[in-house]
Amino acid sequence: MAGGTGGLGGGGGGKEKRGSLAPKRKKKKRVGFYLDMTPLVDIAFLLLTFFMFTTTMAQPQVMEMSIPPERQEQVDVKQSELLNIRVRHDSQIFYNIGLDAPQALDISELRNLAVNENLRQKNRLITALKISTKVPYGFVVRILDELNLAELDINSQLLIDGLERERKFALVPMTEEDITEIEGL
């Protein structure tokens, strides 16, 4: 306490020359260092708007696809193990197993169908997807997406049975026969 007062007294004594300034400072009520940030903020916001407009937020994702390499040899397939999914030019889906009559199917039921049929036949089912050339590409991707989603369920179910999933899937070009068969349905 005594030292403090002594110090203050000494300080006061030393600042005698600047005594005229001291009262001013007290009055000013200094709140801190102040810098004009306007140009900085201008540039910062300029850059900010630039980056905001040039950046693309939603990165597109991909759906992986693989097709078999070109081969001449014919593979024989049991009709009872073949799931035909055909898509007519007006995006109507038909399915049949082997030589059964084609049945109309809504896209929302496709996943269930793929899961059930695959589980029923364990790993043997071959899915052949035949799509009319007039179907919009967006719809094709939706079908492939449904089949990919079905794959998840099939995988987990088969794993319970201790089986390793082997996907047998082919995109087959539509033949004239296919077109006539589902035309009037």
Binding site: P60, E64, S66, V141
Partner: peptide, 21 residues
């Protein structure tokens, strides 16, 4: 797409991606 996939198959580019959203 079908025509394109034919061309890709012929050139042995059998694995590819469809860009989706």
């Amino acid at each position: 797409i079908e025509d394109l996939m034919d061309v890709m198959q012929r050139n042995n580019a059998t694995a590819f991606n469809f860009v989706t959203e």
